[in-house]
Amino acid sequence: MKEWYAAFRQGLSIENPLTVLMIGLCATLAVSTQVQNAVFMGFAVVFVLTMSNVIVSAFRRQIPTEVRIPIFIVVIASFVTIVDLSMNAFVPGIYQVLGIWIPLIVVNCVILGRAEAFAYHNRVSLSIADGLGMGIGYWSVIVLLAALRELFGTGRIVWFDTALVQLPSGYQPPGLLLLFPGAFLVFGFMIAGSRWANEKLEARKEARACRP
């Protein structure tokens, strides 16, 4: 159980796929203009990541090393297509907006990276922990990024046509935040923030270890 929790926690902080490993950024920066979209994009990634980890891990002894990458890609692509079709059928509004980014989860390095680096060498239960941890790590960063960009870029956060948060009307939102340069700026600050927090944590851990 302790091992499981350790694998789960990796993705949330010290090995967060976005702020630390910095993989899979392309889709993240592109869809993080609205909280609503980011939430569903995050769910799609959590689902695909966990499911592909499970399958890769369960069949890791049967998958020959020489052809593992094509097999991973087929597995990942299948789950992505399942998500793609289901979203199209059940949440067409969101599917409309996410468009090309859902199929592109196939080539999202987070998922192939975890299949290769973790699931292929670990047992199923740990691979689930890794998938969920990495997935939730991804989800929280993309949603936070989207929340900051939407709030300060448009002056409000909208969830299915209802405004959740509204800044005072005197605020003139800079449209730059919604464009790509804005994404890099906000994301840069988030990386700085997470580095700072991780260093604080480390320092506290060391201080505790040094105490007699």
Binding site: Q62, P64, V67, I71, V74, T81, I82, L85, S86
Partner: peptide, 18 residues
């Protein structure tokens, strides 16, 4: 064979979802 089997299983799953 291993790639082929993977593809067949994946295709079946996708056909059902579709």
């Amino acid at each position: 064979l291993s790639v082929l089997v993977t593809c067949v299983i994946a295709a079946t799953g996708l056909a059902l979802t579709y």
